[in-house]
């Protein structure tokens, strides 16, 4: 029995073996480039143990924990709101089954530009533009949200059934009514999923844009690290995990309500 299954699943193929061999060679080469060695790992694990010991007991008592977390929340909410509001019309204009090519192309370029750079890089630029603070964080995460929601929503719109649209058009519905009755119901579920994921991702990113001065708990966290204030670092990390988990719980409730 076993032998038969084995033969089915592991057909000896030269290409597969060559692929695995290449992978192993690459991993060894890349590990060498990255400076990986046993001695280094041993030393690192030693430091790590000391470091972990510094985490306990986690400290939640510093006064800048709560304001920092609240500011991260604000950044995440506003970026999700603005990002989604901008992404909706953008993705309708970028959908190739609704719009002619001369409209979709510029929109697609905007979406790609928003998606290319990590929010932290956008945050660096935003800090230069509008100065330190939550404002820069909101701008950075808004840009990221536009890219993410815009791309996925445009793809979702492109995948909808044309037949349902045709039927709505045949009733004499205007363009807007066709969108409302023909397009929206078909993409709504996925849209809610994208926005939920985006809010989740914004929440996580809002805790790090502070590292470059764009507001939120990240600045506090970075400072605590540089002071070797590891019990506070542990406290902040645990608070962030709790916040993200709470966010996931709310998300799943909202998804259930709108199904």
């Amino acid at each position: 029995m076993n032998a038969v299954t084995r033969a089915d699943f592991f057909q000896p193929s030269i290409w597969k073996r060559l692929g695995y061999a290449l992978l192993v060679v690459y991993v060894i080469y890349a590990a060498a480039t990255l400076g990986l060695s046993w001695e280094r790992i041993e030393r690192g694990v030693g430091y790590g143990a000391k470091f972990l010991a510094g985490f306990f007991p986690p400290s939640f008592t510093k006064s800048d924990l709560i304001p920092g977390l609240l500011e991260s929340l604000q950044i995440a909410f506003l970026a999700s709101l603005f990002g989604t509001l901008i992404a909706i019309p953008l993705s309708v204009l970028a959908a190739r089954n609704l719009m002619p090519a001369f409209v979709t192309w510029p929109m697609r370029v905007i979406i790609i530009l928003c998606r290319t750079f990590h929010p932290v890089i956008v945050a660096i630029i935003a800090v230069k533009a509008v100065g330190f603070g939550a404002m820069a964080g909101v701008i950075a995460l808004t840009v990221a949200s536009v890219g993410f929601v815009g791309k996925l929503l445009a793809e979702a719109i492109e995948e909808i059934s044309k037949k349902q649209i045709e039927a709505i058009r045949a009733t004499g519905a205007s363009f807007m009514n066709t969108i409302i009755f023909g397009v929206v119901p078909q993409v709504m579920n996925r849209f809610i999923g994208f926005v939920a994921y985006e809010t989740d991702s914004n929440l996580r990113h809002s805790t790090i844009v502070g590292v470059v001065g764009a507001g939120g708990i990240g600045g506090t966290l970075f400072a605590a690290f540089q002071r070797y204030d590891y019990d506070f670092v542990a406290g902040i990390s645990i608070a962030i995990i709790a916040l993200v988990m709470l966010g996931e719980a709310i998300q799943s409730y909202v998804k259930r309500v709108f199904r």
Binding site: E166, A167, A170, T171, G172, A173, P185, N189
Partner: peptide, 20 residues
């Protein structure tokens, strides 16, 4: 569009908006 609303249409694959 005004002319279309005076012409009803029935389709082979029904073409209902399935999620409504």
């Amino acid at each position: 569009r005004a002319a279309r609303r005076r012409i009803g249409m029935v389709f082979q694959e029904y073409n209902l908006v399935e999620r409504l």
